[in-house]
Design a binder for these strands. Structure first.
Lengths: 220, 220
DNA sequence: ATTATATGATTTGGATACAATTTTGTCAAG
DNA sequence: CTTGACAAAATTGTATCCAAATCATATAAT
């Protein structure tokens, strides 16, 4: 997915969308509409979401693989959900993956990928000046995704990409804090500069700081 | 799962088992029986594995979540499989997760969990003396699993547990090298001692070495 | 009163049937 | 010989049907 697509599709990462049942159920678990411990009866879901049992069962298997529900044979599916502890765990894990990803990406990034990163960073500067928060959310995702790709490690890429969904639903950053966009821009600049210098240690340090600051920016 | 169960179920981690379709297909992809790029037609799988389309579709969704196949809407499922690069990636990733896990586990392990780890290590010593490789494979899995649990981080636990499956199919360790069991025992002893001393740095170092040596023990 | 048991209702697991989409093959036009 | 249109076949997506397992309730035994 190119940076242009990220900008143009207009999906700011905050609306439902939910193109399929799996995504809808995932959303409903992550937002707490379906509560932990609750039993998900297939027929109930059929009625609630107006689909037949076949797609329901497929979605339940997917959610099970993701760890959002537990499927007990012949008994049914039970919501596991995300506890506050899980969210904390997720942030902690994600931080270390992101740092690892930067380290590997700086060592392995291609010329072409670096140009894409550079272009994306310039978009960041532009939309920070224009103070366009929705655009920035998309560009931010693109920036990180480029790094994931540049690790050339399929499993790490897949893992970090999958976390984007969760990040959306955990209490969001305080976008409207003074200097939010400017602060974020400078953190990304540090990361970008490390890539430019092909300095993995500097990159790891910059990403570590970015992750710490991200957490501190969370609404309490 | 207790250490006793690990010992008694007799599953040495090298036979098919494959209790369900998903596991069977997973195995067939990881062993290369189903090749990368190959199209998986639902009806073909039905005939091959003697099941109807409903469980087939469930399995395909699970495999997709795992990243072993790609599901293109209205087109079908295509095997992605594990390239040599993916296996290398997996080892590299797993190493850093394991080190991270030890760090966290040493800080968070409960008295009860530590006792379990201690008991497991004593089983290791015993079966090393008896030179029982099959038992050792199971105990080894148990030892690592206890560490995963002791992180008290559900996502990291889930992630590392899921890798156990892949490890089984990537070219196996050279179990019959001289001193294999003795070497492995000493590496685990270092890890265990770090837990006993509640020394996270020593644990991380010991696990790093264990991971390096594991890789070097691979058959070429 | 509590526990056991039996029976009917509900629910899951799996197979089949039908609809929508894609692929394949044929044949004619350029 | 290639290209395009179109129909037939194959394949995916969804709905429904049947069997097996589980759950709930009522009744009987201790």
């Amino acid at each position: 997915m190119s940076i242009i697509q990220y900008l143009e599709d207009g999906k700011t990462g905050s609306q439902p969308l939910s193109t399929n049942l799996y995504t809808e159920l995932q959303e409903d678990i992550l937002t707490g509409k379906l509560k932990a411990g609750q039993k998900l009866t297939e027929q109930k879901i059929c009625n609630e979401y107006n689909v037949s049992r076949t797609p329901v069962r497929e979605a339940l298997r997917q959610l099970e693989m993701e760890g959002l529900i537990e499927n007990i044979p012949n008994r049914g599916a039970f919501v596991i959900g995300f506890s506050d502890q899980d969210i904390a765990d997720m942030y902690e894990l994600r931080s270390s993956y992101e740092v690892l990803a930067v380290r590997w990406a700086i060592d392995r990034i291609t010329e072409e990928e670096f140009n894409e990163l550079e272009e994306t960073f310039e978009f960041m500067e532009f939309y920070t000046m224009k103070n366009d928060i929705n655009k920035m959310l998309n560009i931010n995702m693109a920036f990180h995704q480029i790094i994931y790709n540049a690790t050339h490690n399929r499993m790490l890429n897949q893992l970090l990409s999958s976390y984007q969904v969760y990040l959306k639903y955990c209490n969001p950053s305080n976008y409207y804090a003074p200097n939010y966009l400017a602060d974020v821009l400078e953190e990304h600049r540090a990361i970008y500069e490390a890539f430019k210098a092909r300095d993995a240690e500097a990159g790891a340090l910059a990403m570590t700081r970015h992750m710490e600051n991200s957490r501190n920016r969370k609404r309490k």
